[in-house]
Computed example of a mutant assay.
Amino acid sequence: MRCVFLFLCLWGGAAAAQAPVQAPKILAFGDSLSAAYGIQASQGWVALLQQRLRQEGYPHVVVNASISGETSAGGLARLPAALGQHRPAIVLLELGANDGLRALPVKAMRGNLERMLQLSRDAGARPVLFEMRIPANYGPAYGESFTRSFTELGQATKTPVVPFFLMPIALDPANFQDDGIHPSAAAQPKLLEAVWPTLKPLLGRPR
């Protein structure tokens, strides 16, 4: 019996040692800007992020759960299921633009984003918040309140904030599709470059 017991212990230890280590996941949770609207999914900045991670030796797997037209309220409704399904280590929260384009109350948007940040942390993930901006024709009062909410929320919750990642392409119409709103395929690498400095410190050392 003692030999059998020792064999089972050794076999169990060997099996545990051979069990594959699950790669940490990055959940991209946004709207059309992250969903590769109007272009092939493989051309979008989220897909390019996966390529960058592999090239630089990071083990992370990127899951893109972004939906075109998504609002902060819609995202809040979807996030618990996404967190439960994917169990991400990092959540890239790129929402709010559609709230602004619909002139929805800033207070409600901020509350939705704050709740999503907390849900991410409760699930063991490190959230990253993306700053959003809206066109000037919505008026200075609403526009300033809208943009300021992201910075204030990041500070209040000690969450890393990606500065408005369309800024590097915003002044050149050639960077956009025919609708003048969504970035072209050629502009996607610039979006990734805008995200990378905020994300990289959260990744740890490459393998």
Rank of each mutant, 00 (worst) to 15 (best):
A89K: 08
S120H: 12
T71N: 13
F164R: 06
A136N: 13
H86A: 06
P105V: 03
V46M: 08
S66W: 07
R87Q: 15
A123M: 07
S66T: 10
P59W: 09
T71Q: 12
G84R: 08
S66Y: 10
R148S: 15
G69E: 12
G30Y: 11
L117S: 12
V162E: 00
G154P: 13
V21T: 08
I134G: 10
E70N: 15
A136I: 01
P105S: 10
P160F: 01
S72M: 08
S120M: 03
G38E: 10
A136H: 11
I134E: 03
L53T: 01
L76I: 04
R54T: 01
F130E: 03
F146K: 00
R126E: 06
D31Q: 12
I39M: 08
R87C: 02
E70Y: 09
L49H: 09
A97V: 05
A123G: 13
G96E: 05
E144W: 04
L95H: 05
A125I: 01
L92V: 00
V106F: 08
R87E: 13
G124D: 07
T157W: 05
A28C: 14
E131S: 12
L101V: 00
L83N: 03
A97T: 07
E114R: 15
L153V: 04
L48D: 07
R54M: 06
G75I: 06
Y37F: 12
N98H: 14
L33D: 01
P140D: 15
V128L: 00
R52D: 12
A136E: 13
V162P: 06
A103W: 01
G75Y: 11
S32I: 01
P127S: 08
G96Q: 00
P160N: 07
E114L: 10
L83Y: 07
I134K: 05
P140K: 06
I67C: 10
T157E: 14
G100C: 04
P59C: 08
G96K: 00
G139N: 11
N98Q: 13
A82Y: 09
A123H: 07
E114A: 15
P88T: 03
A82Q: 13
G143A: 07
A81T: 14
S72N: 14
T151V: 09
A73N: 10
Q118K: 13
G143E: 04
Q118A: 15
A123D: 08
V63T: 12
S68C: 12
Q43W: 10
Y138N: 09
T157S: 14
L33I: 00
R54F: 12
E131G: 15
G139A: 10
L153H: 10
G139T: 07
G30I: 04
G96T: 01
V91S: 10
F146G: 02
A35T: 07
L95C: 14
P163S: 03
V161A: 02
T147Y: 02
F146E: 02
N112Q: 11
G74C: 11
P135F: 02
L83M: 07
G154Q: 07
G96C: 12
T147H: 03
F146C: 02
G124E: 05
V61H: 15
T151D: 14
D122L: 08
A123C: 09
P160A: 06
W45K: 02
L27T: 01
S120K: 01
I90V: 11
M109Q: 10
Q51W: 00
T159Y: 11
F150M: 01
N98R: 03
M109V: 02
A81R: 11
S145N: 15
L53K: 04
Q50V: 00
L93Q: 14
R126M: 05
G111L: 04
G75F: 11
N64C: 08
H86W: 09
P140E: 13
